[in-house]
C-alpha cells in the first residue's frame, strides 16, 4: 500500500517525496513543505480515505542527526494503512500541522512537541502536554540533560547512600 500511495502522490504533488532509488515498502518519506495539502488529499480522496490518524510518533536519530515525525494513517472504509515519515532539522525543527485535518492530531502533536520539541506550524494551541509548562528542554531527545533543580527542589543525579 505504501508503494501505491507513494506513486500516486508523485503524480499529484510532483517533488513531494524525498528522493530515493525506489519506493520503500514500509513507509513514505515526504518533504515537509506540502504536507498540509497532502494530508487533506489523503483523507478526502475517495479511493484512499485515510480517515483515521492512529498515531504520531517522534523519533530522534542521534545527536548529529535529524528528528523525525511519523504518522500512522488508517482507512476505516478500505481497511488499509500507511506510514508517513517527515524529517525535521534538529536546529530548526518545523513541520506543518495536520490538526485541522484529523482532530486527534492536535493532542498527538502537542505530545511530540513536549518530548522532542518539533514545532508544528499552524497548530492552534501548541503547549506542553505532560510536563509542566515551565520545563526546560525536550526530554526524549538524545542530547537532553536534566535540570539540577526545579522550583527549588533538588534533583539529585545519584541518591546518597542511606545511613
Amino acid at each position: 500500500m505504501n508503494v501505491d500511495v507513494a506513486k500516486k502522490l508523485t503524480e499529484v504533488f510532483p517533488g513531494c517525496l524525498v528522493e530515493q532509488d525506489e519506493f520503500p515498502e514500509t513507509h513514505i518519506q515526504l518533504q515537509p513543505d506540502q504536507w498540509s495539502k497532502i494530508a487533506s488529499y489523503l483523507k478526502e480522496t475517495e479511493e484512499l480515505s485515510f480517515d483515521s490518524c492512529m498515531c504520531i510518533t517522534g523519533v530522534d536519530f542521534g545527536e548529529e542527526d535529524d528528528l523525525e515525525s511519523r504518522y500512522n494513517l488508517h482507512s476505516m472504509k478500505h481497511n488499509h494503512k500507511i506510514e508517513v515519515r517527515i524529517s525535521a532539522n534538529r536546529k530548526k525543527p518545523i513541520i506543518p500541522t495536520v490538526s485541522h485535518v484529523w482532530q486527534i492530531a492536535n493532542w498527538f502533536e502537542r505530545e511530540v512537541f513536549d518530548m522532542f520539541g518539533i514545532k508544528f506550524k499552524g497548530h492552534p494551541d501548541l503547549r506542553r502536554m505532560l510536563l509542566p509548562e515551565d520545563w526546560v528542554g525536550y526530554p526524549l531527545r538524545k542530547d537532553y540533560v536534566g535540570p539540577d533543580s526545579y522550583h527549588g527542589i533538588i534533583i539529585p543525579k545519584v541518591k546518597e547512600v542511606w545511613e
Binding site: 537532553y144 527542589i153 539529585p156 541518591k159
Partner: peptide, 15 residues
C-alpha cells in the same frame, strides 16, 4: 526511576 527518570521526584523527603 532512579537515577534516570527525568520527571520523577527522588523521594518525597526532599520536599
Amino acid at each position: 526511576y532512579t537515577p534516570h527518570g527525568y520527571h520523577v521526584l527522588k523521594g518525597v523527603d526532599l520536599i
